[in-house]
Design a protein around this nucleic acid. Structure first.
Lengths: 199, 199
DNA sequence: ACGAATGTAACACGACTGTGCTAAAAAGGG
DNA sequence: CCCTTTTTAGCACAGTCGTGTTACATTCGT
């Protein structure tokens, strides 16, 4: 019958067009029409793939979350527990152009989700990523601990929360002032923080 | 002549109405009309105090910056260098309802400013607050250092950047998951981090 | 009390919004 | 080749947007 097009692929294309609009002009400019124009289709076409605007927003945000998740899941690092930890945490930070872009739209989505006070669709995605990153921090510290690399008497739960906050703070700073908070500097700071936890 | 009304005061009232709209419905909903309704005036009235929408946004964002700035400037803490440092840093964190509200709109503004790539009016305000907080961190650590409280061999510049990132990360977490990242927990984490720097 | 300066409201305009609905186009199986 | 199904484009509607302009209300100095 007609040309068969993978809807999921198409949806991701449109979602990425939305990312570009959000990065360039902010969430306020992300209308069905502007996104359609950015993607190179008619407004009616994008409405064929998304029921409404909120569905588009939600899908685009979920796509960011899935991207981050699969990039971290795909990692398979060899080496010391410290090397592994650093590598994983760096993967969660916006150290290259692609991840910078992702974090920019993530920031915009977080702010937007913050408005839907309570439990909107966006809020769920934010919480999921947030919890995932926190669990990653806990897991990495636990590995370091089991490898006997850590100092004695550390409260792992506390250190995980601190590490998590530090990660997000560094990400935020690299988004706000990329000139000052360079990828190299972020790596230095992260490594230094972890080293203070070592025996 | 007519009733004399302090324009600056009125502008602040309107800006605070905008804050409420932003917190409740997001930046996307912050139109001249919705803000006017929230403030209890006609749209024409708010346009008498602000030339256009961008002016309103910019003023409202600057007001947040000024609020934070003056609250920190007004502090006059007695005690050890550590006590002083903790008190100052806590003032920069969203530990009560008022500051939670401020940080929420600040987050929204940051995301919006991120879109105006380059040097829009909002971007300037973001940078100003960001630099201010960084200088505060540096200043506090320097005081601790001069009081002889810090460990030997610390790179103050590096520790200031780490502290700054930690502060912003904690603020972000308290905005995203206020249930998990409670004010009490934030204080614990902050104090613990500073204690690792002590001799 | 009057009139001038100032604040407030209201309306008009064109552009844009989301979304329902309908018609056209495209394309592979028969 | 044609027909059926999927995909795309387009239009219509009511609502909101920002903003320019105009008329009204208010109030203080004279």
């Amino acid at each position: 019958m007609p040309k068969i097009v993978d809807h999921d692929v198409r949806r991701e294309e449109i979602a990425q067009a939305l990312w570009r609009v959000v990065r360039r002009d902010g969430v306020r400019a992300a209308s069905v029409r502007t996104v359609a124009a950015e993607a190179g289709w008619s407004p009616g076409a994008v409405r064929y793939y998304f029921p409404d605007q909120e569905g588009l927003l939600s899908f685009a945000m979920d796509l960011v979350a899935r991207r981050v998740d699969q990039r971290i899941s795909a990692l398979d690092v060899k080496g010391s527990a410290l090397t592994i930890a650093l590598r994983y945490l760096e993967e969660a930070l916006p150290l290259d152009a692609e991840r910078r872009a992702e974090f920019d739209v993530w920031l915009a989505f977080m702010a937007q989700a913050q408005a839907e006070s309570g439990a909107g669709a966006l809020h769920g995605h934010v919480d999921a990523v947030h919890d995932g990153l926190r669990r990653l921090c806990e897991s990495l510290l636990r590995s370091l601990s089991e490898a006997g690399s850590l100092r004695e008497g550390l409260d792992l739960r506390r250190e995980a929360e601190l590490l998590h906050a530090l990660i997000d703070g560094l990400a935020l700073h690299s988004a706000i002032q990329p000139g000052r908070t360079t990828p190299a500097r972020i790596r230095q700071l992260l490594r230094h923080h972890l080293e203070t936890l070592l025996a």
